[in-house]
Write a protein that binds this DNA or RNA. Structure first.
Length: 291
DNA sequence: ACCGCACCCTGAGCGC
DNA sequence: TGCGCTCAGGGTGCGG
């Protein structure tokens, strides 16, 4: 599940093989709600454009194009943006991987989930966007136009401050975790890092946001920045030339304190990690360490 | 205005 | 061996 760190790692990996190249071919799967811009229009808009930059806003990637338009990409839950020819074992399930001969395992061919394929004038490797569950999004933004999705985003989570959380949480009855997941307050925090930051800050996910102290807000902001920066570091070093579809499956898993550790002992006090559902999301915490 | 919740989708994993 | 069920959660939108 790509959260800010996974998206940032993707951006860094893809940029050198995307920025500066001129799009000469656009292939797409059948229209679906994955395409906020319909495939025929997308093809028309992208063809011939040169990619000027690849930026990130929260969990969104935005490619700036040479005519002033922009291509918005959101990875959703299972989105993967990668370069053709990447050795990409993680792109296949373990079962389908097992059916391949060893020499085939490093080659990924576009499948029914590979919704967008960008070819380039230089004839080099294509850039592919694959998304099994189609929770991801692709949208072309006209020159000078803004996008409601981007407009709604709060400050990037890497720039989180206690002041932001303090101001946003006053008199709110929403659970502290749901406050962290609100992209209009901080952009980029997802389920995993919300649970981790709450644990490191000693805040129970269910606590009402209005009951957070200023010190809690400072701790949360600091820990959000900390877990994200650390994840980008480890993700960047462990992900060589493929992109894992599962944040919990990356190098950061070794440092997880609570996420997906239901029933396992808390690393601080030994009490079993609890799992509840909050805001439709699996939520993990330690009853002893988080008040 | 705020908040809880249903929904979009597919594959993995599990019990029988 | 295979079927049916549950779970995973980012983001949108609706109803209370």
């Amino acid at each position: 599940m790509p959260e800010l760190p996974e998206v940032e790692v993707t951006r860094r990996k893809i940029s050198p093989k995307f920025v500066g190249r001129t799009i000469a071919a656009v292939h797409m799967t059948a229209d679906s709600y994955f395409f906020l811009t319909k495939p025929p229009e997308l093809k028309r808009r992208l063809n011939g454009r040169t990619v000027a930059a690849l930026e990130r806003h929260g969990k969104y990637l935005v490619a700036a194009l040479d005519d002033g338009s922009r291509l918005l990409l959101h990875l959703g839950m299972t989105g993967q943006l990668f370069v053709q020819g990447s050795s990409s074992l993680r792109l296949l399930s373990s079962t389908s991987r097992a059916s391949l001969r060893p020499e085939e395992q490093s080659i990924f061919k576009p499948d029914s989930h590979t919704h967008l394929r960008l070819g380039f004038k230089d004839g080099g490797p294509e850039v592919w966007f694959r998304d099994v569950r189609k929770f991801g999004k692709v949208k072309w933004i006209a020159p000078g136009e803004t996008d409601e999705r981007l407009n709604r985003l709060g400050p990037d989570a890497l720039e989180a401050t206690g002041e932001i959380l303090w101001a946003a949480s006053r008199k709110k009855t929403v659970a502290a975790k749901n406050l962290l997941l609100d992209q209009s307050i901080l952009a980029g925090v997802g389920n995993i890092y919300a649970d981790e930051a709450l644990f490191l800050s000693g805040v129970r996910p269910t606590r009402k946001a209005g009951k957070l102290t200023r010190a809690d807000c400072d701790a949360l902001a600091q820990n959000i920045r900390k877990v994200m920066a650390r994840s980008i570091e480890t993700g960047g070093s462990s992900i060589s030339d493929y992109i894992s579809p599962d944040g919990a499956d990356g190098a950061y898993q070794d440092e997880r304190q609570v996420y997906a550790r239901k029933g396992e002992p808390c690393r601080v006090c030994g009490a079993p990690i609890r799992k509840i559902t909050l805001g439709q999301r699996g939520t993990h915490f330690c009853r002893v360490c988080q008040k």
